[in-house]
């Protein structure tokens, strides 16, 4: 059952954020999460269903100064195929390549993946280790107000974010990686496509002379939200990646996460995978 009374398809950002003012709005983008969740009764569609797909300002991938801006409506397929992403942010391409199926990638959007705030969201882990920020727009008075929030503070629980009901995610902004930047993503599941990750790992940083600095580590599906792993990051910072160090850091990573048992895996197995895959990624970095 739904309270749905109005359907609205704005053609400008102004119209969209104005519609959001009273807050009782469900936002539709690609629909790949919204549709199954509402059909299964896990999500209730509010009085107004607003389809944002006709707003041109929400599309496109552009280089803006030292940032890459990906419009919220950009589909996973568009990200995967875009030359700028392939050249400068190849780790996102890896994540796209493990994202659901072709059909879902053609419809699902980056903004939707972020707002769905799944602890296992495939794009979220690489975005976290790339220091991505979420751009939000609202209309508190009669004018659009925009601000950015680091993705690392955006998530508060499964399906819950710090975005207020009257805000719209308009883009995600990623600082251009510096010289020597490396980034890796690994999604662990039972099959190569159409899977929810059992765990996922992102590692990024600047690799010079056998040491990793400015380290970012993030884990998926081990907590209520995608998480940055601060203890693992600290332990890694400035370390030379020899075999003993890698093993030590993999153990810190395993001890840092607090996963749960569910239909996909037990907590024990998830911790083991965090250990083994962290080790695998770091060995890979060290050998590169």
């Amino acid at each position: 059952m739904t309270e749905l009374k109005h359907y609205f398809a704005p053609t400008s950002l102004d119209q969209a954020v104005e519609c959001l003012k009273d807050g009782d709005v469900t936002i539709l983008a690609g629909g790949t999460d919204l549709t199954p969740q509402s059909q299964a009764g896990r999500l209730k569609i509010k009085q107004t269903l607003m389809n944002i797909r006709h707003i041109p300002q929400l599309s496109g991938i552009t280089l803006e100064g030292k940032e890459i801006r990906i419009g919220a409506l950009t589909t996973i397929t568009e990200i995967m195929e875009h030359p700028l992403i392939r050249e400068r942010l190849p780790v996102l391409v890896v994540a796209c390549d493990h994202f659901a199926s072709d059909q879902i990638r053609n419809a699902g959007t980056i903004g939707g993946n972020i707002c769905n705030a799944s602890p296992a969201g495939d794009m979220l882990i690489p975005l976290l280790v790339l220091d991505a920020c979420v751009e939000l727009a609202s209309m508190p008075e009669n004018k659009i107000y925009r601000h950015c929030m680091p993705l690392s503070t955006f998530f508060v629980g499964p399906g819950k974010t710090r975005k207020s009901l009257c805000e719209l995610v308009t883009s995600v902004r990623i600082p251009l990686p510096a010289e020597g930047h490396v980034a890796h993503f690994y999604k662990h599941g039972t099959r190569p496509a159409l899977d929810i990750s059992t765990i996922s790992i992102g590692v990024a940083g600047t690799f010079r002379d056998g040491t990793l600095s400015n380290v970012r580590v993030a884990f998926g599906a081990v907590a209520p939200t995608p998480v940055r792993a601060s203890q693992t990051e600290q332990a890694l910072e400035g370390q030379r990646l020899d075999e003993a160090t890698i093993e030590k850091i993999a153990q810190i990573a395993r001890d840092e996460v607090k996963p749960i048992d569910d239909v996909r895996a037990t907590a024990w197995y998830r911790k083991e995978m965090i250990h083994n895959i962290t080790k695998r990624i770091l060995s890979h970095v060290a050998q590169a």
């Binding site: 496509a193 929810i196 239909v263």
Partner: peptide, 16 residues
């Protein structure tokens, strides 16, 4: 039944 859906009941997909 914990997984009455194709998300968690894993049929083999083409690449496998």
């Amino acid at each position: 039944m914990k997984n009455p859906n194709f998300r968690d009941y894993k049929l083999v997909t083409a690449p496998e």
